[in-house]
Design a protein around this nucleic acid. Structure first.
Lengths: 141, 141
DNA sequence: CCGTTTTCTGCAACCGGGTTGCACGCGCGG
DNA sequence: CCGCGCGTGCAACCCGGTTGCAGAAAACGG
């Protein structure tokens, strides 16, 4: 098989999860249908024939399989994002951007979060850096 | 009157809101009873005799009056924090810390958020910087 | 090829935080 | 003294997330 192009079926199979109709629909949607981070509600709207709890569990499955990662963008509703292919374990530590106009969330995977010194006694485990503003397509539009 | 000490009643009055029994209870609680950021649930637990929606509306009133400010700490549940007195309009732009053990959220008002360059076309309006880790009292304990 | 077992899916219900509608009550002003 | 407005309590709702359960579908083993 050709490594330069891996089919959606093979991606799921490689991740160690069973390939089912729903999972394939979900993966194709999130892989090709969304340009950036998405919520469960987005997925529901895109695939109205599939039950919400099934979508939820499918997202959990894909996240556990390191095909997606979870973003805590501070809106209270959790967002998912496709992990960069082949590098499924380095999804954290980068800056996120939430557009105040279109409410989309973007991963800036190449901008990493600057570290600030904390007061004595405070120990950092992970950091969220979320910029809210206007995204490039909303500014152009 | 003495500027060095303003009574709770006067604080509310100065902010332009009517002084009522509930508002006084709430203000005293958040002003003297909580050491850091708190949620509506915290307030409910501290003042069980007051109705939840009343507490919610009171918090909204106090926030509108710039006596409190809202923190988006990424947990999905919104937190409130007492604004530094006399400087009620500069509550944003600083680092927050959420303890993974005791789930308290702290305002580090003197640590301001470092700025990162964004890709072309993206315009920043506000930034959330939330560190998750272990707070000093949980580490000592 | 059939029966068993495991997994996946859909439906319904639940949960918690946030929010709103409505009615009562108190206080202030005419 | 009457009425209006604001504050409060109660109940209900909304929304996103989550779980229990039962039926369908896929894998497994003979």
């Amino acid at each position: 098989m050709n490594n330069a192009f891996i089919s959606d079926e093979q991606t799921l199979d490689n991740a160690g999860i069973r390939v089912t109709a729903v999972r394939l629909m979900v993966w194709r949607q999130v892989r090709h249908g969304f340009s950036d981070a998405f919520s469960l509600a987005d997925l529901e709207a895109a695939l109205p024939t599939v039950d919400r709890s099934t979508l939820f569990r499918t997202l959990t499955t894909l996240t556990d399989a390191h095909l997606l990662h979870l973003i805590d963008d501070g809106t209270g509703s959790q967002k998912y994002c496709v992990c960069p292919e082949g590098d499924t374990h380095h999804c954290g530590g980068h800056v996120h951007f939430t557009c105040l106009t279109c409410h989309r969330t973007f991963c800036f995977t190449d901008i990493h979060i600057p570290v600030v010194p904390l007061p004595d006694g405070f120990e950092a485990r992970e950091t969220e850096y979320v910029v809210k503003g206007i995204c490039s397509s909303c500014r152009k539009g």
